[in-house]
Computed example of a mutant assay.
Amino acid sequence: MKIDAHHHLWDLSAVTYPWLAEKGVVRFFGDPASIQRDYLLPEFRADTEAQGFGASVHIQVGAADPWAEARWVQSVADQFPDWPLVQVAFCDLTADDLSEQLDRLQTLPSLRGVRQIIGRAPGEDAVTGTNALLEDPKFLSGLQHLGARGLSFDLQLLPELMQQTAAVLAQSPETQVALCHAGSPHDRTDEGLCQWSDALMSLSCLPQVYCKLSGLGMFDHSWSANSVSPIIKTCLSHFGFDRCMFGSNFPVDSLSATYQDTVSRHEAIVPVASHNDVFHNTAKRFYRIEAARKRIECP
């Protein structure tokens, strides 16, 4: 059984997502028009099960009310016990009531960690100002608080921020970290990838940091196995197979490839002997994913 370590779901009638409500706005990952609709677990499972997947990790995705999103994801997990679904919810690690927020989130059995995005794309970051989190002592304190609770942190940022981030994470060694989207190598020139690889080393040398092979189509909408091969091979070399895990980033990455193509391209690059680690073992261990429970149908 394979595990998809990074995907999203949404029910637009249950939870409000401002970015999915914006019409005609093209984002760094492409034109979201085709995914500005409900994307529910049955549709996701239809694609994933055909490729041998049987469990997954839901990642928060910009809901107006993060608690409402987390509760909705829990309701999905409860509705489909035959599909092990765990989640990474949003929480502001600089909030004055952080402990209370985490107490509430930890009432949800599916919760495994938190994501608070540090960097998405150069242009968008200049507007959101999320890069400033790294200079806030409350952010470091929040990371340490996660580790003390046994919660992980999903890290999304740009290569330009990796060294500064590594210095922060080094002060929170008990907090397990999953680097999203291979660290978002947005500059795909030879020079850009060389700079990304050098910066990536500052994170990979921290034993608590793992790497997701995900989201590789966000900055290259015509990507192929050949075009991302240097990225995947660099991640495997830096982190090792037992600290890398596959994530589809669906439905966002459906803008650039089908689920089948996304999986097959990754499988073609990852050595066959390491498929079990990258497509199952690492995610199962990191996110503490248990076996499926049998679904009980009402008579």
Results as ranks from 00 to 15, higher is better:
262 T>W: 08
289 I>M: 13
238 H>Y: 02
232 I>V: 15
248 S>N: 06
235 C>L: 10
279 F>W: 04
240 G>I: 04
258 T>Q: 06
243 R>Y: 02
284 K>T: 00
247 G>Y: 13
272 V>Q: 13
254 S>A: 14
243 R>H: 08
269 I>G: 03
248 S>L: 08
289 I>E: 09
264 S>Q: 15
261 D>L: 13
279 F>I: 02
240 G>H: 04
248 S>C: 03
270 V>T: 05
285 R>A: 13
266 H>K: 06
270 V>K: 11
256 S>T: 13
273 A>W: 02
291 A>C: 09
249 N>Y: 07
283 A>V: 07
261 D>G: 11
253 D>I: 07
263 V>F: 12
264 S>N: 15
272 V>L: 12
272 V>A: 12
268 A>D: 08
238 H>E: 15
280 H>Y: 14
290 E>S: 12
263 V>T: 10
252 V>P: 06
269 I>H: 02
257 A>E: 02
263 V>K: 03
270 V>R: 06
240 G>R: 08
236 L>C: 07
256 S>F: 01
246 F>G: 00
278 V>A: 12
256 S>E: 01
246 F>V: 05
288 R>Y: 00
243 R>C: 00
242 D>T: 05
288 R>C: 09
241 F>N: 10
282 T>E: 02
245 M>K: 07
246 F>W: 12
231 I>H: 12
259 Y>W: 14
255 L>R: 04
256 S>I: 06
274 S>T: 01
254 S>R: 15
246 F>K: 00
262 T>K: 08
257 A>T: 10
233 K>I: 05
268 A>S: 15
266 H>P: 06
285 R>G: 03
273 A>V: 09
262 T>Q: 06
240 G>N: 04
260 Q>W: 03
234 T>D: 06
256 S>H: 08
275 H>W: 14
242 D>R: 07
268 A>L: 00
232 I>W: 13
259 Y>K: 11
256 S>V: 06
251 P>K: 05
290 E>L: 04
263 V>G: 10
276 N>P: 00
266 H>M: 14
283 A>P: 11
257 A>C: 12
286 F>W: 07
252 V>L: 04
255 L>F: 13
238 H>Q: 15
235 C>P: 12
281 N>P: 00
231 I>Q: 10
236 L>Y: 00
238 H>R: 12
233 K>Y: 10
241 F>R: 14
251 P>D: 07
254 S>F: 11
267 E>Q: 14
234 T>C: 13
